[in-house]
Design a protein around this nucleic acid. Sequence first.
DNA 1: GCAAACCCCACTAAATTGCTAGGATTTCCA
DNA 2: TGGAAATCCTAGCAATTTAGTGGGGTTTGC
Lengths: 145, 145
Amino acid sequence: MKLSTKGRYGLRAMVDLGIHSEQEPVSISSIAARQQISDRYLEQLIGKLKKAGLVSSVRGAQGGYQLARDPGEISAGDILRVLEGDLMSVTCDGDGDGDTPCCEVSDYCVTRYVWQKVHEGIIAAVDNLTLAELIEQSKGMHGGC
Amino acid sequence: MKLSTKGRYGLRAMVDLGIHSEQEPVSISSIAARQQISDRYLEQLIGKLKKAGLVSSVRGAQGGYQLARDPGEISAGDILRVLEGDLMSVTCDGDGDGDTPCCEVSDYCVTRYVWQKVHEGIIAAVDNLTLAELIEQSKGMHGGC
DNA sequence: GCAAACCCCACTAAATTGCTAGGATTTCCA
DNA sequence: TGGAAATCCTAGCAATTTAGTGGGGTTTGC
């Protein structure tokens, strides 16, 4: 139960875009260099973010990526959902093929109950956190941690 | 970012123990049969829970497991932390070997910031949820979901 | 026209997950 | 006193996921 590099890199890339792409599009290679990430790998992650409509692209030379919306209109949850899949989707222990009802085994709905609670906690946290806020945070700390 | 069977099975096993082990210890095989879980696998999970001090064991014939503490004194978070590892541990993207400071790359502390928020949300959810509450939930629903 | 960039898909080594297997040890009970 | 029932311990293994790498294409500014 941990955040993979997909989510971590994606958050950093989006913050980077927010800071550097206001005037002109930013290339994968420049983000990768600043963030010290494999550019081939980052390319795939940003591809997903583009398909999800969070970033827009400009093809050809001097092209690159830009945020598709205002940073205030993008939440950390939006980014993480794209890259990490459903954030703690609430599933039963049933096989989920639709044939069997969700809960034929005694008392395993506790899982569902717990997960509902956890899910609510996560969603509340990441959906109320805008990219704008993260960018502000990031600008605030120069080198220090 | 999902709950593995470890956490799901562990929660169900603990609820099962809470319901059935008040008088006498309960064997792995009976829990596994009721919960429809591989007993060999469950054995390993309960082993961890024992090492963590959440359940106690009685060896030999007619032995088995019991809750080590009152269900009101065990939280869902306690169980999940044992089986799923740190719940969203807040780590930087630094290599974490202690040699390099946490944040030598520009602005990746946003990861840390986001994760702090998510972590708080999760902890608040699972640590305020007692096993007693889950047992009550479980008893409340007979077959229904 | 050519280089810089995005785009797309396939492959792979390493780690994790969800088990299975084979025992050894302890203890109740007939 | 001899099983049988149970916990304990460690190792292995197939399937999946992760974190990339690789080899191309296509679009576009200069």
